[in-house]
């Protein structure tokens, strides 16, 4: 059960054509590993974000498979090459079937 899941991304507003930019992403999520015991002594069931993908104008930037070893509030930093203005689309896939999405525009300066 993931509540108050809030995706956040940091993308520069503009870049020059062909520039490589660094993108930082964070999503608030408990990433329950399935290893931890709750107050009642039973294992807390696993509940994590298991996949994270980023696209720029439909072109894949990264596609990550995440495991329980990723910390609470998964933070991921990576680089993207911007050839044209457009929209980044970030998608997080939860174990419970929820999909969280975020977008960010970028312009060519």
């Amino acid at each position: 059960m993931a509540e108050n899941v809030k995706p956040r991304v940091k993308v520069p507003k503009s870049a020059s054509a062909g520039e490589v930019i660094t993108i930082k992403s964070l999503i608030s999520h408990p990433m329950e590993s399935g290893q931890r015991k709750g107050p009642d002594g039973n294992l807390v069931p696993r509940s994590i974000i298991n996949r994270f993908t980023v696209e720029l104008n439909g072109k894949n930037v990264i596609d990550m498979q995440l495991e329980p070893a990723i910390s609470t509030n998964p933070y991921i930093e990576f680089d993207a090459k911007v050839d044209e203005a457009g929209e980044f689309k970030f998608t997080w896939y939860d174990d419970d079937g929820s999909v969280y999405e975020e977008t960010a525009e970028i312009e060519i300066s």
């Binding site: 490589v20 930019i21 660094t22 590993s33 399935g34 290893q35 696209e55 720029l56 104008n57 072109k59 894949n60 930037v61 990264i62 596609d63 990550m64 498979q65 995440l66 495991e67 329980p68 070893a69 990723i70 910390s71 998964p74 933070y75 991921i76 930093e77 990576f78 680089d79 993207a80 090459k81 911007v82 050839d83």
Partner: peptide
Amino acid sequence: TPGVTITKFGEAAGSRKIATRIR
């Protein structure tokens, strides 16, 4: 559970580098 992540880089990736936080 030893797995941490498998990252695939696409055509719009700017480098082959990722940074994250792990347990």
